[in-house]
């Protein structure tokens, strides 16, 4: 780890541990090491843990902690996390998978693919090749249930968000924002450039682990045709 983690309150019932400002695999690994260490704890003092690119946030119930330890809940949690940081568990235990994700890049589903490739000054074909050309790392889940932030995309197809966010991005939409790529698991408002859509269901409340993608997974997109997409989609809707 290059930088020493720093502590910041996120309001009066949360502590954010910052591992630096950059986005890279090493820092993200440090985040998940602390996450794994805290999860291993027998008597958790937190109600929620939120790992992100380069930070981990602990939410806690201040009244419970105050009654139990009689001091400032923030100072207690800070001391507690500092101890955990001194004896981090390795993250080998997490079962990172290699996932292949089908995407239909047809403009009917890739709502912005034509405009966006123009913005990047490349052809639609090149954009698809660049997007499917590398494996992406799932850095974190956030924003929406099951929304995986993946990176990093090739510089040539990294670009700013839409000037005006859509009020309803369809579920399964694959987008790019800056050097990140992600998939909307549910219909939602959103400002990412939509370049395609996957027929895979990314969030399923009937499952014990409702999110299909998990942090640490590595994802490679591959292109499917419009008819393949529609075939898989109709199979899915027949099943339910």
């Amino acid at each position: 780890m290059q930088t020493k983690p720093t502590f910041h309150p996120l309001g009066d019932q949360a502590l954010l541990v910052s591992f630096g400002h950059e986005i890279n695999l090493e820092i993200n690994e440090a985040v998940y090491q602390l996450y794994a260490t805290l999860l291993n704890d027998a008597e958790p003092c937190w109600t929620d843990l939120i790992p992100a690119y380069n930070s981990l946030t602990l939410l806690y119930d201040a009244s419970t902690l105050f009654k139990k330890y009689g001091q400032s809940p923030y100072h207690f949690v800070k001391g507690y996390v500092a101890t955990c940081l001194a004896s981090l568990l390795p993250t080998e235990t997490r079962s990172a998978r290699s996932v292949d994700m089908p995407v239909c890049y047809h403009p009917e589903y890739g709502l912005d693919i034509v405009a966006y490739s123009k913005k990047c000054s490349i052809s639609v074909r090149e954009l698809i090749q660049l997007h499917t050309g590398i494996r992406y790392h799932v850095y974190m889940l956030g924003f929406l249930p099951g929304f995986a932030y993946m990176g990093t995309v090739d510089k040539r197809i990294a670009g700013p968000r839409l000037d005006k966010p859509r009020t309803a991005v369809p579920a399964g939409s694959v987008g790019i924002a800056a050097n990140q790529t992600g998939i909307y698991p549910l219909q939602s408002p959103g400002g990412w450039n939509i370049i395609g859509r996957t027929p895979i269901q990314l969030f399923d409340i009937s499952k014990e682990e409702p999110s299909y993608l998990q942090p640490g997974d590595s994802v490679r997109f591959y292109e499917i045709s419009k008819s393949e997409f529609e075939e898989v989609s109709s199979l899915k809707s027949n099943k339910s």
Binding site: L10, A52, L59, G142, A178
Partner: peptide
């Protein structure tokens, strides 16, 4: 600056 996404809270 651009901020990498991180946790927010009720009341942020």
């Amino acid at each position: 600056e651009e901020l990498p996404s991180a946790a927010v809270n009720f009341g942020t």
